[in-house]
């Protein structure tokens, strides 16, 4: 059982988060405050909110796990995942924020409904797809947190889940995006500081960076190549499709893209892409190198990984356990993982709350609903989403890793084409957006299942689904009547990022 220092450190962190929630709850007066933080986010809060949202608990364990298993060919995820932050800000954020200043969108569904002149069908389809992928992602997050808490405290799964869920649900429910954004500031700083300290210790413990690489080359030359030869998993063509999936898929994920609506001032988009990319890029490189160090430590018999299917996800935990001989320091790592998981789950829960209360209840079921009622429903849905997720995570589906990849793949094939075509192509029509979104969703399911159960495809499955979605968008758009010029001008549609001066 954990000692008193460990319990104290984790408790202090949890109380700090609930304290932020209490402070934020005083600032929440209406739905706009709750869902977009009154559009008040400044530079560092926004940048670290984006880092915290994209960096999840699974990425913390999974990045080093993948490095441990496949070596250097997997470093491409380090380039493309942080790049999704920059992609989201530049290709979606700048224009969406400029339109929102005039229209006051609360969710991205507001934009899609406006731009495609489809107040019911497209909004409903988009919100339902968004809620489904957010749930899949959420269950994966809670499983990551359970792995770490069970390892640290040697407590049963249900207790670990209840602790984690309770804390994140309290501050998210009472404080909305105010709490989520300011908690992300603290959580991202904990994450960055923690990884900067922990990863070098593990690498040093394994004999230093040069030794680790020489050792990897002697184990298997493929471990130190930038990609693998034909016939292996990470071939160059697969890596490109995988990289694009990660970059664009994460950029248009509902819990990531909605952050741009909460920004206070467009001037912050000047340096936010660079800072978001660099901060998260450095964190991911260090985690990956810690995974490489794990290859040395396991081969030299310093520790053996548990005999489970996802054994590589434990490599960073065991690395810390061996490289740092004091239990109180492990609890700091537990707080790092808690911070990474919470900064993603809180945003996901709030996104589900927003899509349900705003897009489905307020905009479709009861347009005359008073603001207080919408706010209350948001809060109820946040709590319900936490409960449902916790029940699902108690008996995690066997195909969890597959489901998480499926979630990102579905995000990409459902949202990328309607969003990009909507923002930049004046000829894209509402009917085409509905067909493109529906076909993207369905074909992602088909190609994903085919890839998983029948045979491996040469490119990542989502690549084919996006292609279907894109072809549908072009053909149906050209066959249907365009949206009115008035709407296209209101939504600043055209081949530009910065809006031309009027």
């Amino acid at each position: 059982m954990a000692d008193i220092t460990t319990i104290a450190i984790v408790t202090i962190y949890c109380l700090l988060m609930i304290g932020i929630g209490g402070w934020a709850s005083k600032k929440v007066k209406n739905t706009e405050d709750y869902l977009v933080a009154g559009r008040s986010l400044g530079f560092w809060v926004f940048v670290l909110l984006m880092v915290g949202t994209v960096c999840s608990g699974m990425s913390l364990l999974g990045v080093s796990g993948l490095g441990f298993k496949f070596g250097w060919p997997t470093i491409w995820e380090q380039i493309f995942v942080p790049l999704s932050i920059a992609f989201c800000i530049i290709f979606f954020g700048v224009k969406l924020h400029a339109i929102t200043r005039e229209t006051g969108y609360i969710t991205v569904q507001d934009y899609l409904a406006h731009r495609y002149d489809s107040p019911m069908t497209l909004r409903t389809l988009s919100a339902i797809a968004g809620i489904i992928v957010s749930f899949v992602y959420l269950v994966g997050q809670y499983t990551a947190i359970a792995i770490v808490l069970m390892w640290l405290f040697e407590i049963p799964l249900w207790l670990a889940l209840i602790i984690a869920t309770l804390v994140v649900t309290i501050y998210t429910t009472i404080g909305g995006l105010y709490a989520v954004a300011w908690a992300a500031l603290i959580q991202s700083l904990i994450l960055i500081g923690g990884v900067l300290i922990m990863a070098p210790i593990i690498i040093f413990y394994a004999g230093g960076f040069t030794h680790v690489n020489e050792f990897m080359a002697s184990v298997d030359p493929n471990l130190v190549q930038p990609w693998m030869p034909g016939g292996m998993v990470f071939t160059p063509s697969y890596l490109v499709s995988f990289g694009i999936l990660l970059m664009i898929g994460l950029a248009c994920a509902p819990h990531v893209i909605n952050n741009v609506l909460a920004v206070k001032d467009a001037r912050l988009f000047k340096w936010a892409p660079l800072l978001g990319f660099l901060i998260y890029g450095v964190v991911m490189f260090l985690l990956k190198f810690a995974g490489f160090a794990g290859i040395v430590l396991v081969k030299e018999g310093v520790f053996t990984l548990p005999d489970v299917a996802n054994a590589q996800d434990f490599v960073i935990l065991y690395g810390i356990q061996n490289a740092i001989p004091h239990i109180a320091l492990w609890s700091i790592f537990a707080v790092i993982v808690l911070a990474a998981v919470m900064s993603t789950t809180d945003r996901l829960m709030l996104t589900i709350g927003a899509m349900f209360s705003w897009d489905i209840y307020k905009k479709i079921i009861r347009p005359d609903a008073p603001d207080k009622q919408v706010l209350l429903i948001s809060k109820v849905v946040v709590v319900l989403s936490a409960l449902v997720t916790m029940i699902l995570a108690l008996n995690p589906p066997e195909m969890l890793a597959f489901l998480i990849w499926m979630g990102i793949g579905i995000m990409l094939s459902t949202f990328a084409v309607p969003l990009l075509a909507g923002l930049y192509w004046r000829r894209a029509t509402g009917t085409a957006a509905i067909v493109s979104m529906a076909l993207g969703l369905i074909s992602a399911g088909i190609f994903g299942a085919y890839y998983q159960y029948i045979e491996k495809l040469p490119l990542h499955f989502s690549f084919y689904a996006v292609l279907v979605s894109l072809i549908a968008m072009i053909i149906v758009s050209l066959a249907t009547e365009p949206v009115s010029e008035k709407i296209l001008d209101e939504t600043k549609t055209g081949w530009f990022i910065r809006c031309p001066e009027k």
Partner: peptide
Amino acid sequence: MIIITLLLLFWGFFYQN
């Protein structure tokens, strides 16, 4: 990594409503 950093620096300097 370096190429992307340069591109994003470029974006920052030329980012102008």
